[in-house]
Design a protein around this nucleic acid. Structure first.
Length: 824
RNA sequence: GCCGGCGUGGCGGAAUUGGCAGACGCGCAGGAUUCAAAAUCCUGUGGCAGCAAUGUCGUGUGGGUUCGACCCCCACCGCCGGCACCA
């Protein structure tokens, strides 16, 4: 070890050694308790950013700590390497997506290595590798066989300028992410996964199985699934055999229905208006809606629009005839695509009724003297008792709901039901750089899956990337034509690829057995490692990725492939890394690249700062001065160790604790060991863990100057300091450990035990308060009883003076803490 | 609009179960060392009044519960995030 902290040499030296020794290789060991720590794998953009550094530093500290604490730790890394940027690069620069992606992966592997992260690289999973996507296709086929995958025609996002389909994520504020054109809708036949089959289970498990998840994420998922309970009610149509069913959550307001609205896409509309005087207006309106962008269609602020279609519906309970309209505020893919309009008690219906001069019938009395129910100026959403509702008058709305459903069911014109906001998952992408959907369309047999022994269906390479046309794979001369796996006749392959969110929905299972050629993963290995004990990633994945991964794990569980039903036991959502209070971005020019920090201060400093500057869940503001502070601290530790060995040589750590200074150092040492264990292993407060190590170092600096310092105790502190700092800054600690005579890696050391006795102070400082205000501090023996405390406090000379002329009403004593004297 | 979170010195943050508010770090000030600087080490550092001892105010605002509140309850203000014509 050199006299000065040469972080570059040190970090290179230990990274090479870890690699040479396979230091982080993990094998299943049924005799050891397992711990699976996982960070969300990155998209290989080519450059690591600070968000990655934060994510992986957190994971690495946990992984290294758990290993030292005796667990068999699985800590893998890989790349979510299918996706659009590779294809855009191909369109722009003519580089093949595979070449672009693999070169980025290799760059990022290097940068991850330079951070000193303890990954078992033998388990790397890249989703764009054929050995991985083969099993993605296999899973898709199992889902298809189980009825979880199906194809249907649906409107999709279409960019008229790029002439291509866009994923929802590529539509930013209603415009194409690439060219900025307004996105419109186009009907295309698409593959879907039936995530809605799992809606109830996904919802229920949130409360029963996700204790280790942040509440915020659980609430977001609940809202996203959006379960609502209500009723379906059948309305007969006048002069027609058709019965239209509406969905409502407020069946108690049925008597207040003054019109019905259908979604413009409702298939009955055309039938109703055909050949009537209403046909022209209705068809024009439907056409108008088709051309509306998603934002225009769903904007709550715009004025209501709609058209009367000439038909009347009959209220099943009142027999009232109500006009039927179409309006774009009713969505075809939620509920039944038909809504009963109750203007008095629904804001949207109120707006619509005002615009079209429809009756506003109050049926729930809010019993508010300030509201005139017979002349509503605005919608009345307050709950109360029913009025104008026949036999249900006087009932509280909740009771009325139950009674109305009862009657509807008895008469066979309605039923209680539930609806979900969650829709089925559209997974087709008219894209090249993704997993090919392994389906074949045969003129005789229809859609059939490719034979499993023929997997993988490889991505073709004879592709022209133009950015135009529906799907790049259509330009391949070798891919499309094939034979039907059922009848052997000529057939055509699906040319769409899968949404990349599928790849990230099971990669954590593949890590358990990444090289398996025979199976997607061995059940035995997956059951040993799963579930993930600690998952770490950005909160931006709170809904989609985390919900999809839960869905996949449940479905794979139901297929008998793995025992667990939920993939992630504990979830930590790390906050963003900002600069000057703003998100780091190229346009603001405030990006700090990890590479420049590693170059200037080294990976250990970068890791230490990022963990110290803020608790992991909170946003972190990058501070150049703060980084220097972390660097200064590591130098301070380095000097402490160097000077110790330089001055005293090899010292046996045989502490003898005599003086109060010895006791204090021993106390600090043991407190730190305990605190770092609690903070890192329990509540992920890396910032306070580090601050307690800093306090220990400060105390050691004081202690070493004392003439009667105990060398054996000091040696023990030095040794244990290196160990507890190692998970945070592994390179410098390896170097110091070796210097101190360690023969193996400090990562293989056991976490030191702390001495309970050392944590007990002989004397404690207690506070004496007068009416809750601190007046005096006295040092007394530890663990005195309330009575003893009270006596000591009241007999204290200063306290006596303070009490002079006052009446003591009450004394509260809390052992080892305080005495509060209440006086008048 | 609905749902969730946050609000503490000049700054990042700490206070784990209702018990000394401001740990640790940054910054700043002073000192030691140095020919000088950098680096390093030491000391101080919430506001106000005071030479000081000390007093007093203080965790977004207003109220409440309690011997005692950053922490619990009620009302409000501000900021951030998610969802949003889902009937």
């Amino acid at each position: 070890m050199k006299e000065t902290y040469e972080f570059k040499d040190i970090e290179k030296k230990w990274q090479d050694k870890w690699k040479k020794d396979d230091a982080f290789k993990t094998v299943e060991d049924p005799d050891k308790k397992k711990y699976y720590v996982l960070e969300m794998f990155p998209y290989p953009s080519g450059k690591l950013h600070m968000g990655h550094v934060r994510n992986y530093s957190i994971g690495d500290v946990i992984a290294r700590f758990k290993k030292m604490d005796g667990y068999n730790v699985l800590h893998p890394m890989g790349f979510d390497s299918f996706g659009l940027p590779a294809e855009n690069a191909a369109i722009k620069n003519g580089i093949a997506p595979a070449i672009w992606t693999w070169s980025n992966i290799h760059e990022m592997e290097e940068q991850l290595t330079e951070l000193g992260l303890s990954y078992d690289w033998d388990r790397e999973v890249c989703t764009c590798h054929e050995d991985t996507y083969k099993w993605m296709q296999w899973i898709f086929i199992q889902f298809y066989k189980k009825g979880l995958a199906y194809k249907k025609e649906n409107p999709v996002n279409w960019c008229p300028s790029c002439e291509t389909v866009l994923a929802n994520e590529q539509v930013v504020d209603g415009c194409c992410e690439r060219c900025g054109s307004q996105v419109s809708k186009k009907n295309l036949s698409q593959w879907y996964l039936k995530i809605t089959d799992y809606a109830d289970r996904l919802l229920e498990n949130i409360d029963t199985k996700l204790d280790g998840w942040p509440n915020k994420v659980k609430v977001m998922q609940k809202n996203w699934i959006g379960k609502s309970t209500g009723a379906e009610i059948d309305f007969k149509i006048k002069d027609s055999d058709v019965v239209l069913t509406v969905y409502t959550t407020r069946c108690d307001t049925l008597f207040g229905t003054s019109y019905m609205v259908l979604a413009p896409e409702n298939p009955y509309v055309e039938q109703f208006v055909k050949g009537t005087e209403f046909e022209k207006d209705a068809m024009e309106y439907i056409d108008h809606c088709k051309h509306l962008s998603e934002i225009e269609r769903t904007s709550t602020s715009k004025e209501k629009t709609g058209v009367f279609i000439g038909k009347y519906a009959i209220n099943p309970l009142t027999n009232a005839e109500i006009p039927i309209y179409i309006s774009d505020y009713v969505l075809m893919d939620y509920g039944t695509g038909a809504v009963m309009g109750v203007p008095a008690h629904d804001e949207r219906d109120f707006d619509f009724a005002k615009k079209f001069n429809l009756p506003i019938i109050p049926v729930v009395d809010p019993e508010d003297p300030e509201i005139d129910v017979n002349n509503l100026k605005e919608v009345c959403s307050a709950k109360g008792k029913l009025i104008n509702s026949g036999e249900f008058n006087g009932m509280y709305y909740e009771e009325a709901q139950a009674k109305i459903i009862e009657r509807l069911e008895k008469e066979g014109v309605g039923k209680a039901t539930t609806n979900f906001r969650l829709r089925d998952w559209l997974i087709s992408r008219q894209r090249y750089w993704g997993t090919p959907i392994p389906m074949i369309n045969c003129p005789d047999c229809g859609w059939v899956p490719e034979k499993e022994e023929n997997l993988p269906v490889l991505l073709p390479t004879d592709i022209e990337f133009t950015g135009k046309g529906a799907s790049p794979i259509a330009s391949s001369k070798t891919f499309i034509d094939t034979v039907c796996p059922c009848c052997g006749k000529p057939a055509k392959r699906e040319i769409d690829t899968m949404d990349t969110f599928l790849d990230s929905s099971w990669y954590f299972l593949r890590y358990c057995d990444p090289k398996n050629k025979e199976e997607v993963f061995s059940k035995e290995k997956a059951d040993y490692w799963m579930d993930v004990d600690q998952y770490i990633g950005g909160v931006e994945h709170a809904i989609l990725h985390l919900l999809y991964a839960r869905f996949f794990t449940m479905a794979l569980h139901d297929l008998g492939l793995v025992d667990v039903e939920e993939p992630f036991k504990n979830l930590l959502t790390q906050g963003m890394v900002n600069k000057d209070g703003k998100k780091m971005s190229k346009s603001l020019g405030n990006v700090v690249s990890p590479a420049e920090i590693i170059e200037k201060y080294g990976a250990d400093t970068a890791r230490l700062f990022i963990l110290f500057a803020a608790p992991p869940e909170r946003e972190l503001d990058w501070s150049d001065k703060g980084v220097e502070g972390s660097y200064r601290f590591l130098n301070r530790v380095y000097r402490l160790i160097y000077d110790f060995k330089d001055k005293y040589g090899d010292v046996v750590d045989a502490p003898s604790i005599k003086t109060s200074a010895d006791k204090k150092l021993n106390y600090m040492l043991n407190t730190s060991i305990k605190k770092v264990r609690d903070d890192v292993g329990g509540r992920f407060a890396f910032n306070t863990a580090i601050s307690s190590i800093m306090e220990l170092v400060n105390e050691m600096y004081r202690y070493k100057e004392l003439p009667d310092m105990d060398l054996g105790l000091y040696a023990k502190a030095v040794k244990e300091l290196i160990i507890i700092l190692a998970p945070f800054t592994p390179h410098i600690c390896e170097e110091m450990w070796e210097y101190m005579g360690g023969t193996s890696s400090v990562c293989d050391e056991s976490w030191p035990d702390y001495d309970e006795q050392a944590l007990v102070k002989d004397e404690v400082e207690i506070v004496v308060q007068l009416n809750g205000k601190v007046k005096e501090k006295i040092s007394i023996a530890n663990n005195l009883t309330k009575e003893e405390l009270e006596k000591i406090a009241l007999e204290d000379e200063n306290v006596k003076k303070l009490l002079d002329g006052k009446n003591v009403i009450k004394v509260i004593a809390v052992p080892n803490r305080l005495v509060n004297i209440v006086v008048k």
